[in-house]
Amino acid sequence: MRFAPTAEQSDLRAVVRDLVRELCPPAVVRAAPDSAEVATLRAGLIELGAPGLLVPEAAGGLGLDENYLVGMMIETGWAAVPLPVVDTFAFAPGVLAVADLTGDRFCGADPDARGTVHYGHNVDLVLTGGFAGTGTIQVTAASGGASVAAVDPAADLLRVTAGPVLATVDDPEVVATAWLRGVLGAAAQLIGLCRRMLDLTVAYVAARKQFGVPIGSFQAVKHHLATALLALEFAEPAVARAGYALAAGEPDRARAVSTAKALASDAAATVARAAIQCHGAIAYTTEYDLHLYAKRAWALAAEWGSAGWHRAAVARELLSTERES
C-alpha cells in the first residue's frame, strides 16, 4: 500500500509543470487561438509526447497509464492551457488507436453530439459520441465551422461543419474506456484549476489591506478559504484513486471515476465562489486573471457529466437491488 505517485509519475508531472509555467502564463490563456504563443505551447506539448501519453510504445506513444495522466491534467488545468488537452490526451488515444489514426493531431471531443467542440481552431479531428461510455464514436476531419459565444473567453467554441468521416468506432470497451478517461481528465484539470484559484486568492488576501490590515486576517475570509481548501483536498485523492482504478483495470473503475468527477466539480464550484467573494470587486472584472480560471472551471464542471449527473450514477449503482450487500 502506497497512495502517492511514484518517482516516475512525479517526474513527468514536474516536466509538464515546468513547460506550462513557461509557455502558458495568463497572457497565453488570453491570446488568440491562432497566435504564435498558442502555437508554441501546442508544439511544446507535442514535443513532450503528450498526445501519445496513453498510446502503447509499439504504436509510437509513451506507453504510460492513467496514473501519469492525472498529474499531467492537474498541471495543464492549473495553467488553464487553451487547447483541447482532455479531448486529445485522455479521450482520443484509445479511439484513434483502433482506427489507426494515432498521431500528433489535436482532437475536439463532442461526446453528447451537440455539434460543438472547444478550441475549435486548434482541432484537427472531431470525435463525436461516446457520452456515458455508450454508443459509437465517429472520427471526422475538422473542416471549420462557426464560432459560438461562450462564458469562457478562451473556449474557442466552434459549431463544426461536418467533415469527411474517417472512422466509426463501436467497440464497447474502447468507447467505455475513452469516456472514463475523458471524465478523469476533466476531473484532474478541475483539481489544478481549484489550486490555481486558491493560490491567487491566498496571495491576494494577504496583500490587500482594508481597515489597515490584510483582509486575509479576518476570520470570515479565513473560513471561506478553509472551506474551499477542504473541498479541494478531499476531491484530489478521489481523482488519484480514479486514475489508479483505470490503470489497474479495477472492476469499480466507473464508480471511482464518477466519484472523482462529482467531488472535483463540487469543489470547483465551491472554490470559484469563495475565490471571487474573497477578492471582492477586482474579481468582477476581466482585467484581473481570476476569471480565466473560474470560467474554465465552470465549463469543465458542466462537461463530461456534471456533479449531479455523476452523483446520480453513483446513487443508481449503490441503490440498485442487484447490488450485493
Binding site: 486558491l198 491566498v202 488576501v205 494577504a206 490590515v213 490584510p214 486575509g216 486576517s217 476570520q219 475570509v221 479565513k222 473560513h223 478559504l225 478553509a226 472551506t227 481548501l229 477542504l230
Partner: peptide, 14 residues
Amino acid sequence: RNIIAERVLGLPRR
C-alpha cells in the same frame, strides 16, 4: 478553520 487558514494556507494571523 482558523488553523487551516493560518497554518496550512499561510494567511496572516492578524
